[in-house]
Simulated scan of single mutants.
Amino acid sequence: MSGNKEISTPTIQRTNEIMSEMLHAADTLKKIGIAVSVFGSARITSESPYYALGEALGKGLAQAGFVVIAGGGPGLMEAANKGAFESGGTSVGLHIKLKREAKSNSYLSIDLPFQHFLSRKATFFMHSTAYVVLPGGFGTLDELFEALTLIQTGKVPPGPVILVGKSFWGGMFDWIREQLLGLELINPIDPDLFFIEDDPVKIVDHLKEFYRTHPDLAKQVGNKPI
């Protein structure tokens, strides 16, 4: 066997695909401005009050000058994209094809398809300055805790992580404070960076004020202050 022959394995192929997706996303989003990721369930229908809340958040963020990044699929991802898109803002969808999410929603200024969760998640955190988390299941929880982990370990610039829905998130938030913080398993929580809020107007106002007083944080991810 020749020592110069290149060997391709499934692992190498997947790695190349992941890198290609990340590079394409980085090139596409390099000049989008200050972006906020909105996470939430694909399973919640348009009849749910949470859908209306997600749409109001997307609208408010877009009107305040933020780019909205969501998963590009149905449910609360669609709600956030719809609010931003119909308000004339930039609505980004990082869509990964799944059984429940066979196609991207119809409210996207930029539609980025992904085959791999790793490259998709990296794109969220490389291009967002804040994270707004609506109710969701395992995928949403995964995104939430990765955002908190990356911020607390200094791998991404600090930015607000806002849980939307006190009745949904309240018990988990209390557990985090009582158990994780109480046992000193995590760093002290900055109330300006991690909190629960139901009012979309207050959420948008908090983000506007945060980046008015911390313009350097937006620049750390290559985006311009609003």
Rank of each mutant, 00 (worst) to 15 (best):
M1R: 05
M1K: 04
S2I: 01
G3S: 11
G3W: 06
S8A: 12
P10N: 09
P10W: 13
P10K: 07
I12T: 15
R14H: 09
R14N: 14
T15D: 09
E17K: 04
S20L: 12
S20W: 01
L23S: 14
H24T: 14
H24A: 15
A25W: 05
D27Q: 15
G33L: 12
A35S: 15
V36A: 07
S37L: 08
S37Q: 07
S37E: 06
F39Q: 06
A42S: 14
I44A: 01
T45Q: 04
E47P: 00
E55G: 01
A56D: 07
A56C: 03
A56I: 02
A62H: 03
A62K: 00
Q63M: 12
A64E: 05
F66W: 05
A70G: 01
G71N: 08
G72A: 10
G75A: 11
M77C: 07
E78T: 03
E86H: 02
T90K: 08
T90C: 07
I96D: 01
K97N: 02
K99P: 08
K103H: 04
S104M: 01
L108H: 09
L108G: 11
L108F: 04
I110S: 06
D111R: 14
L112F: 10
F117N: 01
K121E: 11
T123D: 07
F124G: 03
F125T: 13
P135E: 06
G136P: 00
L141F: 11
F145N: 07
E146L: 13
E146W: 00
L148T: 15
L148H: 04
L150P: 09
I151D: 12
Q152I: 01
G154R: 14
K155E: 11
P158I: 11
P158L: 00
V164E: 03
S167Y: 00
S167L: 02
F168C: 08
W169P: 00
M172D: 02
W175P: 09
I176S: 05
R177F: 03
G182C: 11
I189Y: 04
D192P: 05
L193K: 02
L193G: 12
F194R: 12
F194M: 15
D198F: 03
D199P: 05
D199G: 13
D199I: 08
P200G: 12
P200E: 12
K202D: 08
I203E: 05
I203F: 00
D205M: 03
D205T: 08
K208N: 03
E209G: 05
R212T: 15
H214R: 15
P215W: 03
G222D: 08
N223V: 14
P225H: 10
I226A: 00
